[in-house]
């Protein structure tokens, strides 16, 4: 367990720095940046304590907000995505969710892509909503949320396939 946590925290730290130093500066179409750090929320084992995961998501978002000066947008997006994750996993994987150890390796690609897509879409829409926090910009919130989710999906999806062991 300690080995898992050590590896996971190293992974989370690596993605944190990759996000703030590289992926936040991509600015595709002038605004789109892939949110690779959401992979931390995606890949945390589903059989782990949800209470601890909520705390982890909160502080991960908070650390991102402190560095990127986004005043709570990352925190609320990460926290809420972490909170709805069990339901999204249940919806995407069905009964396979009862076997979390093999969830990302021995499930259908379509299920994993659905899980990834839903997590990213919810996270990015929430992030855009918190960043603008105004119905006046509803169109922009949806446009930015969907575009960023799609861009993140294209970056993260091939990486998650890498976790699949070769047969």
């Amino acid at each position: 367990m300690i080995q898992y946590y050590t590896r996971f925290f190293a992974f989370a730290l690596g993605l944190y720095f990759a996000q703030i130093l590289i992926f936040d500066h991509v600015n595709l179409f002038g605004f789109a940046n892939p949110a690779v750090y959401v992979a931390v929320l995606l890949l945390y084992r589903l059989d782990m304590d949800q209470f601890g995961f909520l705390l982890l998501a909160f502080f991960y978002g908070l650390l991102l907000d402190l560095i990127t000066q986004t005043a709570g947008a990352h925190t609320i997006a990460c926290l809420t995505t972490a909170f709805v994750r069990p339901k999204l996993a249940q919806f995407s994987f069905g009964n396979n969710v009862d076997n979390p150890a093999t969830l990302f390796t021995q499930t259908l690609t379509n299920n994993r892509l659905l899980y990834l897509g839903l997590m990213l879409l919810i996270h990015q829409l929430l992030f855009a909503f918190m960043a603008y926090f105004s119905w006046q910009h509803a169109f922009r919130i949806v446009l930015y949320g969907v575009t960023n989710a799609l861009f993140s999906f294209l970056v993260i999806a091939p990486s998650i396939s890498l976790f699949r062991p070769k047969k």
């Binding site: 705390l55 909160f58 908070l62 005043a71 709570g72 926290l79 809420t80």
Partner: peptide
């Protein structure tokens, strides 16, 4: 407990996002 923790952390997050609070 998870739902209560979520509401509590969400509340903290909303306070944090209100950039004019003294703490922030």
């Amino acid at each position: 407990k998870n739902f209560i923790l979520y509401l509590f952390l969400l509340f903290l997050g909303l306070i944090f996002s209100g950039t004019h609070s003294g703490l922030h």
